[in-house]
């Protein structure tokens, strides 16, 4: 028997639940429709070309796409080992009090507004890189193309380091959780066989937490891809593609933030819509992979002990 109250409740919750997929669908449709002229016009040139000149009607977001991928990947490469190490210290090595403090501090990093990171990046990080780090990297630039070229400060590297700091709390929080979830029986199995604490971590804890850590890293990558404000403030905002991390660059989200408000004409607007669509597709793909990884942990297909 379903009463009137139940039916009303069902309808309300059903409606609420439908809002989420509907919103995603709506956003996608709006973007596809808005981007259509640019997609039909520029086609693959939209990502293949790196000439973005609204004045002459040339829209190639290739440099911004590469900038988005490069800064995010680099950020993850920096943040992942740092985050996992922080999680290991927090869960395994620190005493209960220090552990609580570390966890709270690391969570606090996630609460800092993006624009504050951006200000800090522009006011502290970029000058620091320009005066301290870049001159020292200069000699390396002769052998490593990634570090070659003139360096002004605002750069892909600055953006990547700032992003790394911003996604660090996400990597740390997920790693903490999955490391703590590795069963005690696995740790004791290693210890009882003569493993030192470090060997236990290496052989029993980290392998058991591996999938979950990967999932956390992928989620962090998703966040890095979409981050806008802070990156815009330190990346230099130039459609350059010089393969040097020390040179200025662009990201898809920065491009949108800088130009959407003052788009000149329908073709420019359509091109920006196409950029937004591109960003959406990239982030959705990364998040889908991340969710898959995390789910495989929860369902027990991971190396975690199978519950019986």
């Amino acid at each position: 028997m379903i009463g009137a109250g139940d039916r009303a409740w069902r309808a309300t919750t059903g409606l609420a639940a439908a809002v989420i997929p509907a919103a995603l669908l709506l956003v996608t449709v709006v973007l596809v429709v808005g981007a259509w002229p640019a997609l039909a016009d520029a086609g693959p040139g939209l990502v293949a070309s790196r000439t973005w000149d609204p004045g002459r009607g040339t829209f190639g977001a290739g440099a911004a796409l590469v900038g988005t991928l490069l800064t995010s990947l680099l950020a993850v490469l920096v943040a992942a080992p740092l985050g996992v190490a922080t999680a290991v210290v927090t869960v395994e090595l620190a005493g209960p009090r220090l552990s609580r403090v570390l966890a709270a501090l690391s969570d606090l990093l996630a609460a800092v507004p993006s624009i504050v990171y951006g200000l800090w990046g522009a006011a502290v990080l970029v000058p620091l890189l320009r005066s301290e780090l870049f001159p020292r990297l200069k000699p390396l630039g002769r052998v490593i193309p990634l570090l070659a070229g003139p360096a002004y400060g605002p750069s892909l590297l600055a953006a990547a380091l700032l992003l790394a700091l911003m996604i660090l709390p996400y990597v740390t929080a997920v790693s903490r959780e999955v490391i703590a979830a590795v069963p005690r029986s696995q740790r004791e199995a290693a210890l009882a066989l003569g493993a030192t604490r470090w060997e236990m971590l290496r052989d029993a804890v980290l392998p058991g937490a591996r999938h979950g850590i990967l999932g956390g890293v992928a989620l962090a990558l998703g966040r890095a891809l979409g981050e806008t404000m802070a990156v815009t403030m330190v990346i230099g905002n130039r459609h350059d593609l010089s393969w040097s991390l020390l040179s200025p660059g662009y990201t898809l989200s920065s491009l949108l933030a800088n130009e959407f408000g003052e788009a000149s004409g329908d073709r420019h607007l359509a091109a920006l819509m196409a950029v937004a669509l591109l960003l959406l597709v990239v982030t959705l793909l990364v998040n889908a992979v991340a969710r898959g990884l995390v789910r495989s942990v929860r369902s027990g297909r991971s190396s975690l002990e199978v519950a019986r």
Binding site: E188, L193, G194, E305
Partner: peptide, 19 residues
């Protein structure tokens, strides 16, 4: 202690092979 645990093996209530 690690050396001691090599001389003294232990088997637990709930079998705990590594994955």
């Amino acid at each position: 202690v690690a050396g001691l645990r090599r001389r003294v093996g232990m088997v637990f209530q709930r079998w705990n092979p590594f994955p």
